[in-house]
Amino acid sequence: MDTFHNCSRPRSLIVTKVLRYWSLFLLFFGVLWAQPKDPYIGSQACRGCHLVQTQDFFRNAHTKADRGCEGCHGPGRAHVNGGGKKDAIIAFSTLTPKKSLDTCLQCHSKDMSRANIRRSSHTQSEVVCANCHSIHKSATPKYLLAHQQKDLCYTCHTDVKAQFSMPFKHRVNEGTVQCSDCHNPHGAPASNWRMGQRPRMQQHAQSNEQSCVQCHADKRGPFLFEHAALRVDGCNSCHAPHGSANPRLLNRPVVFTLCLECHNGAAGFGRTGEGIPTQSGSHNMADPRYQNCTACHVKIHGSNADARFLR
């Protein structure tokens, strides 16, 4: 039956079918031929001219990028075909700060530590990724920083550099404390202390508090009797965290002035609005023994046994 039908098929039908398949075949390859060439050319092509940048790139974390050099610099075929045409490739030195940030965030936005980078003080001052990170000439294999972290921060924050040279300081210059232990250079959420507006770039401890308690866990509490200053205005109420001429990084050379500046009974302040309580009448500031407040109020950060922090 089938044989009969095949044999009896009109010749015109066969020709039509062949023409149809042939036209489809031509159309398919025609479309392929008409497609523009792949704009990506591959990292091998970059080596010809950019040998310095590429020969040690196997050490670089960006070597894991899907498209190699073109992952950051964009498609390179036009650049190569144009004989190294500068405007045919993404050169970070020519990008606006926002464009530069956008390019890096294509991959690096997944980390939550960069959630506030668009509103960070650095971005607002047009300090973006390439100002601190050097992809091809980094001084540190980790994080690809242009210099060692402290040197990088000191480049602009010269006043902080001076503070870390004070007699009492956190050991940043000595290498055991880093700026990023307390600060997030990519921007931080609103602070949980003071009024939530300043400071702007301070890293939060994991437990949502000021970064100081990350190391000084004994000051963290919770205590039955909290020294409200810690929670309301933060550690900076009494301490200069970068460096100070005063022991314990205090803001004043002697303790009693620091305490009396708040504990002065001025109306309108404090928990009740009747002022922060003044010292009791048993104190005599003319006597040196009363000038070291923390000699008796030893648990000044908080106590579980005494509302006046005596034990």
């Binding site: 006043d159 009396l260 002065n264 010292q279 500031m285």
Partner: peptide
């Protein structure tokens, strides 16, 4: 490099001295 940092504060104080309450004094730093 050269840098200077000038800090000046003045604050109203109240404290006891020789059994007397001293009010409206000022602390300077």
């Amino acid at each position: 490099g050269y840098g200077h940092t000038h800090i000046e504060t003045v604050t109203g104080l109240a404290y006891f001295s020789l059994g007397e309450l001293v009010e409206n004094d000022r602390g300077f730093y």
